[in-house]
């Protein structure tokens, strides 16, 4: 995963706060085919992590590719990855390249 995306970065976000704290736009069949981070909320887990940035495009969540998933499906996948108690972190594969 990610080998064909030379600019991609794996970011592990610890569940350090009660919310993930990102807003995303995009998904299959929209102008932005992969979800893009549009906001990072102060005090959220993503902000605490310090490695996610506004403008990054999310390629994978916990190794699951987002390509081809519509917005709600992608959002639900991310929400569930944050909610599950199986892991104390969420892994994002992100790229600056849009």
């Amino acid at each position: 995963p990610g080998l064909l995306e030379p600019t991609s970065t794996l970011v592990r976000v610890a569940k350090s706060a009660s919310t993930l704290g990102i807003a995303i736009e995009g998904g299959a069949n929209t102008r932005q085919p992969l979800p893009r981070i549009v906001t990072i909320q102060r005090g959220g887990s993503a902000h605490n992590c310090g490695q996610l940035k506004v403008g990054q495009v999310i390629l994978e969540v916990n190794g699951v590719p987002l390509r081809g998933r519509e917005h709600r499906d992608a959002a639900q996948l991310i929400a569930e990855a944050f909610k599950t108690k199986e892991r104390d972190h969420v892994d994002f594969l992100v790229t600056e390249f849009n």
Binding site: L20, I22, T30, Q32, V38, H71, A75, I78, A79
Partner: peptide, 15 residues
Amino acid sequence: REKRLTLPPSEITLL
């Protein structure tokens, strides 16, 4: 590319 221009904007979801 023309097709891309006709695609709708996405909604935004806060997670």
